[in-house]
Amino acid sequence: MSRRDARRVLGLPVCAALAAVLAAGILAGPRFGEFHGAYGRMLNAVAVPQRHATNVVTSIVFDVRGVDTMGEEFILFAAVVGVVLLLRDEREPAGSTRADDVRSDAIRMFGVVMVGPVLLVGLWLAAFGLVTPGGGFQGGIVIAAAIVLVYVSAGYRQWSRFGRERLLDPFEGLAAAAYVAVGLAALVAGEPFLRNLLGNGQTGTLVSGGSMSILNWAVAIEVAAANLVLYTEFLESYVVPHISER
């Protein structure tokens, strides 16, 4: 019996156990469409009057679960550090042939045209994160996607203008630090960690949510920079050995 067959046989009881747990969980959970979570109801009722944030999800992320989100931001940070440590200075030996020149005019044209709009959508998602659907995480990833379009449409040479770690690392580090700084500022003022010191602002505007909007932007920058560092690392271990050969 080969290893692969052995894996299939060993997988059967695991799958059966997982199926049993999943079925039990779904059957014991609330009936579809009839969930009455006390916290969710309460937050839906108080987020706008108490926090002046019309997007309840974002106000949970940056206010009610603010400490959690800080941990989450550092999971992202730690993962990026891990990827950088694994890939940096251990480039693959050159010798394989890889072409990253963009040959299709349609793709090049589409990419160049879309960079601006995608960047704008990302900024808009982040800026109105406390008002309409969106938020720092979503906006940050779309901003990163806009820069990735530069690589898709123009190849590595143009990408390397943005995708330089020396340029991105400070953004990533400072954004993560900014989140903690907002939390510590409250401590210095004699308030609990991450307490909103700036007031709530005006509901439904760009300045609603007080220090939540600072946290929101810190996360947007952190997510965008972290993803760009990731792409840069993977691209460099993929493309650069080939380019240096020429």
Binding site: F35, G40, R41, N44, T54, N55, V56, V57, V131
Partner: peptide, 25 residues
């Protein structure tokens, strides 16, 4: 799990406060 029949997104921009919304948590 968080879905509720007849409820909208938990975003109250342009929606009267107190209208049914799905669970934001």
């Amino acid at each position: 799990v968080g879905y509720r029949h007849g409820a909208g997104a938990p975003i109250f921009k342009g929606v009267p406060l107190g209208s049914p919304a799905v669970d934001p948590v």
